[in-house]
């Protein structure tokens, strides 16, 4: 087997994976809003010129859930007549920080290289990912094809049929792809090692 420490890039990515796990743990063990805000600042600084884009993506991702929870909590606190601000600040800062750390990790680190120590895990994730991308592209095509073919807004029955056709196509392709990948593995001698 190849030496996992031979490639300095792989080593860096593996360290980044470890650092990411520790950062996530730390962000859930600290309950002082000042520390969380500091962590968020550091994360954005690490993002460099991409900080603005990162922050806006984080906000868009967490907004629906956080807004619902925050409004609900505000109402509850108002009924109980206690000041809610400290808790709201803590909750929202923590969510922002954790999401920002994750997005930065996804953007910067090659997960496949970070997992290079396990051939099986790399293979598993690689095949699942590429197949998922293929399915996602096909999924978009199913949706667009209906739009393209419809001079009028498609009816409920038509939309239902497209979903059914898409789902059965994925099932079919998945079964075929699984058989084919197993054969490909065998011919490459993956199982002989």
């Amino acid at each position: 087997m190849n030496n996992p420490f031979a490639d300095p890039g792989a080593r860096r990515d593996r360290l980044a994976l470890l650092a990411y796990a520790l950062a996530v743990l730390a962000a859930t063990l600290v309950h002082d809003p000042r520390w969380l805000a500091g962590g968020l600042t550091v994360t954005l600084l690490l993002a460099g010129s991409g900080a603005g884009g990162l922050l806006s993506r984080v906000l868009r991702t967490v907004l629906p859930f956080n807004l619902a929870v925050s409004m609900g909590y505000l109402m509850l606190a108002w009924l109980r007549t206690e000041p809610p601000w400290q808790t709201l600040l803590l909750l929202n800062l923590r969510v922002l920080l954790l999401t920002a750390i994750t997005f930065l990790f996804v953007r910067r680190v090659n997960l496949f290289r970070a997992l290079g120590f396990s051939r099986s895990l790399t293979y598993l994730l690689g095949l699942a990912y590429s197949q998922a991308l293929t399915f996602r592209r096909a999924h978009e095509d199913f949706r667009l094809a209906l739009v393209s073919r419809s001079p009028r807004r498609p009816g409920l029955m038509d939309r239902y049929r497209v979903s059914a056709a898409a789902a059965s196509w994925y099932l079919e392709k998945a079964l075929a792809a699984a058989r084919e990948s197993a054969q490909a593995l065998r011919s490459r001698g993956f199982f002989d090692a």
């Binding site: 096909a138 199913f142 393209s148 073919r149 009028r152 038509d158 049929r161």
Partner: peptide, 22 residues
């Protein structure tokens, strides 16, 4: 939409994406 979709048509590379009727 009605005007344009009646005049311009696109054949997708993957024909399966276009087929959904019984």
């Amino acid at each position: 939409n009605r005007r344009f979709r009646g005049r311009a048509a696109l054949l997708f590379q993957n024909p399966d994406a276009m087929l959904f009727n019984p």
